[in-house]
Design a protein around this nucleic acid. Structure first.
Lengths: 202, 202
DNA sequence: CGAGTGACGAATATGGAAACCATTCACTCG
DNA sequence: CGAGTGAATGGTTTCCATATTCGTCACTCG
């Protein structure tokens, strides 16, 4: 949920930076990443392209910022689930559903943005790696909570469990597979969640 | 392991058909699917392109045949595991490893062939769907065997367990993810297998 | 010094003509 | 009828010149 220092430069807290991000968000969502030029963004704000480069190292860096914005939406949903007053098992189930649902939503109703997130993953942008780490850490904490409560088994090394769960999320998270499994996504999310929860039984 | 009737036509058992498949196998593996023309195949055998179309409906149909050939290799490895005299749990573990290993092998040492299999999956060719079904059916039988022996739990509907396991295989099977997880593939395969086996505990 | 820009080189995208390729059909030959 | 082909067609790729676009630098202005 915090701003990431990646490909950014110049004054961190600056009205112009926010304007650039706002303009980029709008343009990318409407016309896609490739089809909006840096000049488009500059024109929308009423500045020269050269000046944008005082705030971002590259066009891709702007893309990363927008991508992080998008990730923040996913993460805030997940963090709401984590803070909810339900069992860790239920939380895990809801996280699976949330990721599947938001992923499908993005794919169906916000394709341009989905494509940006997709290339962020394929090309291993910083934003995607950071999101993975954040997600991994959330799941890890959930596992700790569940173990403490005696709700989850404790024998398997927690790193292994954590990695395995993150992997098991890929079929409903990774753009290529999400698209591939689109029609059955909701059921699939439930089924994988069930399998994972069975594997966590003490 | 059997010939599939898909995009094929004309006499089923014919020397020419085998020659075409042999030539296609060689050319595709060496130069890739896109870069070999139907004329190349015809020339290699010493026939006209028109005649090839007596045996295959399209170039893609030839691609499917080669793809099936490739799948047969994977499947025969798996069937050897199934016939092995070990517990269903061990079989499942070995299947995970076999798929991961063969996938990586194909990717690293036979990229051109890997690419064909990859587009077969992305474009939902018949060969890919058939392989999925075959794999699914093998796993289903394994589950039945394990349940009968009292080695696996019996409460979850078998279709659900089966689907969930097939999904959990995707991170180590699907080309996009295989490439993405390449460096950690072996470990990942083990960890997912472990998770799945924990979930199957009675 | 912070805000801001015009002009420039290198990389990349674009568009349309030309070359290629997949596929079919009517056909020959034994 | 089975084996096999040449020539025609329409769709796709390739190629190359042209135009855009990214990103930097040296610079102005207050």
């Amino acid at each position: 949920m915090t701003r990431k220092p990646s490909g950014q430069r110049g004054p961190v807290d600056h009205e112009r930076r926010d304007q650039i991000i706002a303009a980029a968000h709008e343009h990318f969502r409407l016309y896609g990443y490739k089809k909006t030029t840096v000049a488009d963004l500059a024109k929308a704000i009423g500045l020269s392209t050269a000046y944008l480069y005082k705030f971002f190292e590259s066009k891709k860096a702007i893309g990363e910022a927008i991508c992080s914005l998008c990730h923040d939406t996913l993460l805030s949903d997940i963090q709401a689930i984590v803070k909810d007053n339900i069992t860790p098992s239920e939380k895990l189930r809801k996280i699976f559903q949330s990721l599947a649902h938001n992923g499908a939503e993005l794919f169906l109703h916000d394709r341009k943005m989905h494509d940006i997130v997709a290339s962020a993953i394929e090309e291993k942008w910083h934003a995607a790696i950071a999101f993975d780490q954040e997600l991994s850490s959330i799941i890890r904490n959930l596992l700790l909570e569940g173990r403490e409560r005696g709700e989850f088994e404790r024998k398997t090394p927690i790193d292994e469990t954590c990695r395995a769960i993150v992997l098991s999320l890929q079929p409903i998270r990774h753009p290529a597979l999400l698209e591939y499994n689109l029609e059955t996504l909701d059921n699939d999310a439930t089924m994988i969640a069930n399998l994972v929860l069975r594997s966590l039984a003490p």
